[in-house]
Computed example of a mutant assay.
Amino acid sequence: MNQEILFIQREELKTKPDTSSLGFGKYFSDYMFVMDFHSETGWYNPRITPYEPLTLDPAAMVFHYGQAIFEGMKAYKGADGTIQLFRPEKNMKRFNQSCDRLCIPQIDEEFLLRAIKQLVFTEKDWIPDGDGTSLYIRPFIFSTEAYLGVRPAKEYKLLVILSPSGAYYGSQLSPVKIYVEEQYVRASIGGVGHVKTAGNYAASLKAQEKADANGFAQILWLDAKENKYVEEVGSMNIFFKINGEVVTPRLNGSILPGVTRDSVIQLLNYWKIPVREEKISIEEVYAAHERGELEEVFGAGTAAVISPVGELHWNDHAIVINDYKIGQLSQDLYDEMTGIQLGNKEDPFNWVVKVAQVEV
């Protein structure tokens, strides 16, 4: 796809928020990328346009049948002032995997990455440079055809919006409390748990609401069939350090294949720290805690990077990890990952992609 990306200038730029008050996902930059699809023409009319509300027909199929997918990425301001992305090709590949599962037309991965680079460069002044901050990148696609029959839509819209963000959980490395959910399920094998579709997150809200009311930051989901095997946290993949070894649930078709998850596994292998991907039950986690062998628990995801877990609440048991203090491995992984993302540490895996100047 070699279409030229049109640039539409906005009349007045927004006032940028103070870095200390960013939070996550509250503010949005001046511009967004937009592209449309029709079954007769394919993807067309790529443009960078002022960030603004959308107008949709009430019969737009996304409202009725939920064809909507998204990705989560970040841009960082490096120590030398360069703009850096972290493994963006993995996000583009997963974006297309989500498209395929929801019968949404595939995108040209190289073209979309070029468009994202161009948008990020245009909005380079929106990239915060405070500790733990980044420019969050949200590509998404949804069906726009006005039709009430149940079938894949013939028209779609792709957008990329940008949000300057701070730490996902407030205090970046303060261990969080997580509630192990046993009533509701997030996804099942054969469903859509392995892709980033909007409905997955809608289905999680009831349980998250319950967790919030009881003082927990997130939900740890168990498998849908036996309600015993650990799957993932609402916004992160999960890792357990047990007796010197790291264990994470293996990908099974209902767990999201996280980019940060994959990066953590590669780093652990690089450091020669034993790491296994396998089924692990919540009973096994509790038993390891009772034996004094559950050394660390942490989540890994784009938004939080590494999030240490201070407590798992399961079956009226408070499983306290490392006395609510961050473990050394969690700290090392966070330091290494963010160091690579910011260009402060060596990148032996060639994960970082620099955003060069692009004519707009």
Rank of each mutant, 00 (worst) to 15 (best):
R138F: 07
L220D: 01
G301H: 11
I282H: 02
P46E: 11
C99E: 01
D223A: 01
I69Y: 01
S165P: 01
G42A: 05
H64Q: 05
I83W: 09
L6F: 06
A202L: 13
S174H: 09
D323L: 10
Y334E: 00
Q341A: 11
S143K: 05
I141M: 05
Q357R: 14
C103Y: 05
P58G: 08
F7L: 09
W43S: 11
P152M: 04
G149P: 01
E182N: 10
Q208C: 11
I116P: 00
R250V: 14
I104H: 11
F216W: 12
G190E: 06
E296S: 13
Q183I: 14
V264Y: 02
T82W: 00
T41K: 14
S171Q: 14
L312K: 08
F28D: 05
E311Y: 03
I321Y: 03
E12S: 15
E278M: 13
I326H: 01
V247P: 00
I104R: 11
P58M: 09
D323Y: 13
L342S: 10
V309I: 15
A202G: 15
G132A: 15
Q208A: 12
G191C: 06
Y44D: 14
K14Q: 07
K124D: 12
K77V: 05
C99W: 03
R276S: 10
S204I: 04
N227C: 09
T41S: 14
D212F: 14
K354R: 15
D262Y: 08
S29M: 01
N252P: 08
I178D: 04
E109W: 00
Y27C: 03
N45Q: 14
A146K: 11
V192R: 06
E4S: 09
D100T: 14
T197M: 10
E89G: 07
M73R: 03
E311H: 02
H313A: 13
Q331V: 05
T338F: 02
G327C: 06
K241R: 15
F37M: 04
G253F: 01
S330R: 09
R261M: 09
K325V: 06
K228E: 14
I178N: 01
L6V: 15
E145I: 12
F142E: 05
S20Y: 05
C103N: 08
V246W: 04
P53I: 05
T144P: 00
Q84C: 10
R261C: 09
P249V: 07
D30E: 03
S165E: 04
I189P: 07
D323W: 12
I48M: 07
Q9F: 03
Q331F: 11
I306H: 03
R138S: 01
I137P: 02
E109Y: 00
V176C: 10
E231Y: 08
G301P: 08
G310H: 07
K157C: 13
G244L: 10
K154A: 13
E278F: 01
A153Q: 02
K177I: 07
L54Q: 10
S263M: 02
Y324F: 15
I326W: 02
F240W: 04
V246K: 03
K206R: 13
H317V: 08
F37L: 00
N91A: 03
Y229C: 01
R87N: 08
K325D: 06
Q9I: 07
A287V: 07
E182C: 05
S235R: 04
Q172N: 10
I340A: 02
Y201E: 12
N45V: 01
